[in-house]
């Protein structure tokens, strides 16, 4: 220890952090990988390449990406409204955004299902238009949008609130129209936070089980999500296969998140 750190307490706080991280993240993940390693290569390939797993993976990642995208667009709009305008009930609306965080996901799933089922409020209207919402891929998408939405709003909100009106005013005095101000000044500043929000919503959606299970219908090859396949393997006491699917999911998710992070860095760097 030749150099003493300026901020005291480094050893102690690092100790706490490492122990804590090990206990809640590293050790369980290591156990997962060890369990998954119980399968041979052939079994891995057969399991992860089976049509059921591939269909479920397409649905899980596809619906998650779609839901996160919609959350990002609508989240931007909602945040804009919440931050930029004063209107009665704003506080209430603001508090409501957090509901999907607090609600048990099973409750969310059952509620959404009750509303979007063919005999539910909205389901009835959609059914008359020939659209089946619950027990279809659309139901999965709806549930994932519901749970992912607050992530976007909550990451964008502080950034937008801090932004201040000065730069917009400056842009306006230099002759930029409203659209140009948004496109060239405001939006680029929001992009990093927007990507973070998208990433959080996306990651959350990939792992979501509780809410989706009630609304998806769980039909093999059609509306099964990957976490449900893991549960099915567990029900058969096939812990290795469950761990293998989980590991596969984890690797794909991690790669996607890593790519998004890289993208974000590039954008950050360009903005500088």
């Amino acid at each position: 220890m030749s150099k003493r750190r300026v901020i005291p307490g480094f050893g102690m706080s690092l100790g706490f952090s490492i122990t804590w991280l090990s206990l809640i993240i590293l050790i369980p993940l290591a156990a997962l990988f060890i369990k998954a390693a119980g399968l041979g290569w052939e079994e891995w390939r057969e399991l992860l390449g089976s049509p059921q797993v591939i269909a479920a993976a397409k649905l899980t990642f596809g619906a998650s990406a779609a839901a996160a995208t919609v959350s990002a667009v609508l989240g931007l709009l909602v945040t804009w409204v919440l931050v930029r305008y004063e209107f009665p009930g704003r506080r209430l609306l603001d508090a409501m955004i957090d509901l999907p965080f607090a609600l048990p996901t099973a409750v969310a799933g059952i509620t959404l299902c009750a509303i979007y089922a063919p005999n539910g409020w909205l389901g009835e209207i959609l059914a008359s238009l020939g659209i089946q919402a619950a027990y279809n891929w659309l139901g999965v998408f709806i549930a994932l949008t519901f749970i992912g939405f607050p992530f976007v709003v909550r990451t964008l909100q502080p950034v937008m609130a801090d932004m201040g009106k000065e730069i917009e005013e400056a842009a306006a005095t230099l002759g930029a129209g409203r659209w140009t101000v948004f496109r060239r000044v405001v939006f680029p500043l929001l992009v990093p936070a927007l990507i973070t929000g998208f990433t959080l919503a996306f990651a959350r959606a990939i792992g979501e089980y509780g809410s989706v299970i009630f609304i998806s219908g769980n039909l093999p090859m059609k509306t099964e999500i990957l976490p449900h396949l893991i549960i099915i393997q567990l029900e058969q006491y096939n812990y290795e296969a469950a761990a293998a699917i989980a590991t596969g999911m984890l690797v794909v998710s991690f790669s996607l998140l890593f790519l998004i992070n890289l993208l974000q860095r590039r954008i950050d760097w360009q903005n500088r």
């Binding site: 220890m1 480094f10 102690m12 706080s13 690092l14 100790g15 706490f16 122990t19 804590w20």
Partner: peptide, 20 residues
């Protein structure tokens, strides 16, 4: 040199004790 290491180890121990 000794003090930070001791603190480091005892913090690990403390976390475990709390959980146990």
């Amino acid at each position: 040199m000794k003090a930070p290491k001791l603190l480091f180890l005892s913090s690990i121990l403390a976390t475990l004790v709390i959980i146990a």
